[in-house]
Design a protein around this nucleic acid. Structure first.
Length: 794
RNA sequence: GCCGAAGUGGCGGAACUGGCAGACGCGCCGGACUCAAAAUCCGGUUCCCUCCGGGGAGUGUGGGUUCGAUUCCCACCUUCGGCACCA
């Protein structure tokens, strides 16, 4: 027998050429009006082309999606599996700056390189649907959607304290400030008051806390909890406090209206308008310094600081005059930026009161009942909350209110490489949207795009000057660009209808495919991209543009592939790519290795050692299949491998489909191949070999296709996924475990049809069991049919 | 501080619904083939004791429920993640 050597490269190139020539992985949309429940939209988060190669984290992510895609396709489903590029934004622009080229050149070169690697890995991707955020055919519709949000009041401009990254020289969103630092570059962010565009994501705060998933959909509980933590909902009341001498009201938000009688002073945040309008020089001086500090630093301060403003407010519930302080422990961006201070029942207020010698009045006793609270005395605190708010409402001094931690999404960027915001400013007409027919507002090519603390586009006079669409007088363009996360908040809709030049997408097509059946991506995007996308879809649904309210029916987070204990990423520089490994061992081996490393949702340390075992397995599979092709009979007769093969089909199918688990199916096929190699001439060896090849195909499609051909067949990629015959999953005999007092004493091969009393009888007679029964009474017998007998003795 | 997840051989991990702990793979040990090596194949590999029949212990720690617990409950330890001067 002379089995040829397994050489992956020519085999992989051969089949990749076939798939490319035949457009094997192109999935056209079904004819309009098609309804079926056997379609699947498989999506993994799209990559940033900020470098010219992938790392092993990408390989894990996309290979998982690939296995699922093959599995669903062969199970008879119509599967959409696209790919695109998150090409705008800081990472790409910074990469271009580093290498001194234009961002467009950098990303387009990187896209070519990464696309080549993806094809070399043999992934099932419908390249005819490829989109990239930086192409005018795409960002035209990003701009169009922005205008729709503007019409609905969901995009707006305001001056507000925003996070400024001094290194990247742009505003960044709250969601991408981590521990007070820029998520991209690690620089400490500063708070700056700036006029910016925002998306009103807070309008959907409550809805985003709920998950309106379709039937069969699921999100990990952990993911939902993290999003809910981020949104942060507190129920309470808004209460008006009057400054008599100024004839103004200052609202506060509190979760503890029951403690209103215990308020002994009042505090506004340094950034509060009251300070600017009514503060004396000392107050404003304090506020200026305190307000410039980051929240993290304020929280870390050893002692409470503040200044009395000289003003007083009236407590609406008892008419007491409370001194108004400005203090930096009150934050402008939560609640109303002002608080009623109840030192007896709030730690921070207590600390402040101690420092400044302010009175402390207890209004709730140990039984959680109100005291010293006028007509509310004796009420349990929970009841008092409602009663006091109701009383305030009657007086016109308060109302129930809900406060969120979530802030509106600040989306203007003072950088060049992004989607232009389609707005024109006119001295007479104000903020004027660019008419739809004039879209896209093209991003001009400029030589000097370096960040300089203000939008680089602003210095391009020719581009900036434009007639006002409303009155025709000269206006000026918005020079900021959009946050990259705007681009990626709707890309999954564009894939469905990527070449549409009349609309961002066709509603019928989108309603057919969406929500995404399974979305795979890193958990780090939970409070950013994933929240933004859900907001977009809910808003689009309210605008009648899509027929669903959640973009992603199921969500799966792959674990980090780490090196040296930290996540592989370009910023950290600890990156290993697949290219060299693919050259040396082949794409199939790399695909198997990354999935065989362990549960896909767990973090893992990358090591090349694992690839050896996988390569051994592939060589063994190769050899055994050749032996089978040569020696096994071509007609099938049942043998011991038949049952094993059916068991493997059941195991692999269930793991992939229901459990979304990828490493145990590989083990199962290894077991089958190991047994097959013991007897490659068995009467059912051919069936076992075909089964092994068929089951490993989603993981290792090239070698599987080649071996399938050598077994005399064609086109495994469209061959129906095997189905386990239940008749073979039942065993005629089983191994009966015999326990005495819970300890295993014997294992007996017994007929599966034996009734329980006979199983007990066999157990009692076992040579290995009898010594353990000596001088003992059998008090109880437990029989688990098909498994074990436990004799309880004493 | 609040909320959540996870702890199993030398290593990655398996055991899905309370029923054989350690599948599969790595590594290691021994053997075959070879002048030799690589590759490949075969056998062994949780720990302790052993008269080689077997016996005992064992899934972070301590308790509990149960005939039976890696799995369920309670407490604790460790690690990781989210939120945190959020009123």
């Amino acid at each position: 027998m002379n089995t040829p050597k397994y050489e992956p490269k020519p085999i992989e190139e051969k089949w990749q050429r076939v798939w490319e020539d035949e457009r094997t992985f192109h999935t056209p949309n079904p004819p309009p009006g098609t309804t079926d429940d056997t379609h699947w939209y498989q999506l993994e988060m799209l990559p940033y082309p900020s470098g010219d190669s992938m790392h092993m984290g990408h390989v894990l992510n996309y290979t998982m999606g690939d296995v699922l895609t093959h599995f669903r396709r062969r199970s008879g489903w119509r599967v959409l599996r696209p790919m695109g590029w998150d090409a705008f934004g800081l990472p790409a622009e910074n990469a271009a700056i580093r290498e001194g080229s234009h961002p467009r050149e950098t990303v387009e070169r990187n896209i070519v390189a990464i696309r080549g690697q993806m094809k070399r890995l043999g992934w099932v991707i419908d390249w005819e649907r490829e989109v990239s955020a930086h192409q005018p055919t795409y960002y035209r519709w990003t701009q169009w959607l922005f205008l729709k949000f503007l019409e609905r009041g969901l995009a707006y401009r305001k001056e507000a304290p925003v996070n400024w990254c001094p290194n990247d020289q742009t505003v960044i969103a709250n969601e991408y400030v981590v521990d007070g630092r820029c998520e991209r570059c690690g620089a400490e962010v500063e708070l700056r008051n700036m006029t910016q565009w925002f998306f009103k994501i807070t309008a959907y705060a409550d809805e985003l806390r709920e998950y309106e998933l379709p039937e069969g959909g699921w999100w990990p509980e952990r993911s939902k909890t993290i999003q809910r933590n981020w949104i942060g909902r507190s129920e309470g009341a808004e209460i008006l406090f009057r400054v008599e001498e100024l004839d103004i009201d200052i609202p506060v938000f509190t979760t503890r209206p029951d403690t209103l009688f215990g308020a002994t002073f009042f505090v506004v945040a340094p950034e509060h308008a009251f300070v600017e309008q009514h503060g004396n020089e000392e107050v404003r001086e304090y506020a200026k310094h305190a307000g410039a500090r980051r929240t993290e630093d304020r929280a870390a301060a050893e002692a409470k600081t503040g200044v009395f403003t000289g003003h007083h407010v009236i407590n609406p519930v008892n008419g007491e005059r409370l001194p108004v302080y400005v203090a930096d422990y009150v934050l402008m961006d939560y609640g109303t930026g002002a608080i009623m201070a109840v030192p007896a029942h709030d730690e921070r207020d207590h600390e402040f009161a101690e420092t400044f010698g302010l009175p402390i009045v207890e209004v709730i006793n140990e039984d959680d009942v109100l005291v010293s609270s006028g007509q509310f005395d004796g009420l349990p605190a929970e009841e008092a909350k409602r009663a006091i708010v109701e009383w305030l409402r009657e007086q016109g001094r308060g109302a129930p209110a809900v406060s969120y931690r979530l802030r509106d999404w600040s989306m203007s960027r003072q950088r060049y490489w992004g989607c232009p915001i389609p707005i024109i400013y006119c001295d007479d007409c104000g903020i004027v949207p660019v008419p739809e027919d004039d879209l896209p507002v093209l991003l001009p090519d400029i030589d000097d795009y370096l960040p300089k603390g203000k939008a680089p586009l602003a210095s391009n006079e020719e581009w900036m000057r434009v007639p006002c669409p409303s009155c025709g007088k000269e206006g000026r363009r918005e020079a900021d660009t959009m946050d990259t996360f705007v681009d990626s908040s709707w890309y999954f809709l564009r894939y469905v209808d990527p070449h549409n030049d009349q609309a961002p997408f066709d509603r019928a097509a989108v309603d057919y495919w969406l929500p995404v059946s399974l979305y795979i991506g890193g958990i780090d995007h939970l409070t950013g991209h994933l929240l933004y996308s859900r907001f977009f879809v809910k808003a689009l649904n309210d605008m009648g543009m899509v027929g669903f309210r959640e973009p992603f029916a199921r969500l799966y987070h792959q674990g980090w592939v780490q090196m040296g204990g930290t996540k592989m990423s370009k910023t950290k520089g600890n990156v290993t790519g697949p290219a060299a490994l693919v050259d040396e061992y082949g794409a199939d081996a790399v695909r198997l290795t990354i999935l065989f490393m362990g549960p896909a949702d767990q973090d893992k340390e990358w090591t090349e050692e694992g690839i050896e075992g996988v390569v051994r397995f592939l060589r063994r599979l190769w050899r055994v299949v050749h032996e089978v092709a040569e020696r096994a009979p071509s007609d099938w007769r049942e043998g011991p491998l038949t049952q094993r093969a059916h068991e493997t089909i059941a195991k692999v199918s269930d793991d992939v489909e229901r459990r979304i688990q990828f490493h145990t199916p590989i083990s199962a096929v290894m077991v089958l191949v190991n047994e097959l190699s013991d007897d490659p001439a068995a009467p059912d060896a051919r069936f076992a070999a075909e089964t092994a090849v068929s089951l490993i195909q989603p993981y290792a499609p090239h070698i599987a296709e080649e071996l399938w051909q050598r077994l005399g067949h064609e086109r495994l990629w469209e061959h129906p996924w095997p189905v386990a015959d239940p008749a073979y999953l039942k065993r005629d005999t089983f191994e009966l475990v015999v326990q005495v007092n819970g300890k295993v004493r014997d294992r007996l091969q017994v007929d599966a049809t034996l009734p329980e009393p006979e199983l007990v009888e066999l157990a009692l007679q076992s040579e290995k069991v009898r010594p353990h029964l000596d001088g003992m009474q059998v008090q109880k017998t437990i029989v688990v049919p098909g498994r074990l007998v436990n004799l309880v003795v004493g």
